[in-house]
């Protein structure tokens, strides 16, 4: 993952609430087995039908509960591939937000007034280290989990970090075998031929 720090530039505005991941990347494009090349299918139906227009800019400004619905990581892949580096919205769906941070796409939650001001300004500047968003005539602080922030700033591989704790996982498994019900359930399934 590429490190994320300062993101600045023009803002694309998608002023709708409850935009779901089925809209962000419709199901017919989930059949690919790669991570790349999803940008051209972003908001496929809405863009093709002229329902919305959307420029490729560093920042997307979206409505509340953005990214609700399906857990498909193809949604952040498509947004990133289209050119977005950060998304600012009043709120995000949990799984979508998490998926963004795994790919270096920065989700920023700001209250509606801040979002409206940024939409009006048309440009913004984001400083992840300082947790600030600035625009012509204003600025705001945003919250982010310190561990996620560190991982994004340094472009760290989360699996490598966890594998660094493999001794703790080993210890947990050894300890766990001594309490609780036996639930290595898979072993009990009759084998498939």
């Amino acid at each position: 993952m590429k490190p994320v720090n300062v993101i600045e530039g023009a803002v694309s505005v998608l002023d709708r609430a409850d935009v779901d991941t089925d809209q962000i990347i419709p199901k017919q494009f989930l059949k690919r087995v790669e991570r790349t090349g999803f940008g051209e299918f972003l908001f496929y139906d809405w863009l093709r039908d002229g329902e919305i227009s959307l420029e490729s800019n560093p920042i997307l400004l979206a409505g509340r509960n953005f990214g609700c619905g399906s857990s498909r990581e193809h949604a952040p892949w498509a947004l990133q591939d289209f050119g977005f580096e950060a998304i600012i919205a009043p709120s995000f769906a949990d799984i979508f937000r998490s998926n963004c941070t795994k790919n270096g796409l920065l989700p920023i939650e700001l209250e509606q007034a801040g979002c409206d001001a940024i939409a009006a300004a048309g440009r913004a500047s984001i400083d992840l280290a300082a947790q600030r968003v600035g625009w012509a005539g204003g600025e705001a602080h945003f919250e982010i989990d310190p561990k996620i922030k560190d991982r994004l700033l340094n472009g760290l591989d989360e699996i490598a970090i966890t594998l660094g704790q493999v001794a703790a996982i080993d210890a947990y498994e050894a300890e766990r075998a001594r309490f609780g019900p036996p639930n290595l359930a898979v072993d009990r399934l009759p084998a498939e031929n």
């Binding site: 857990s71 498909r72 990581e73 998490s98 998926n99 795994k102 790919n103 699996i159 966890t162």
Partner: peptide, 9 residues
């Protein structure tokens, strides 16, 4: 539910 990066994790 989790995303694909988490599936890999």
């Amino acid at each position: 539910g989790i995303g694909t990066s988490e599936v890999e994790h």
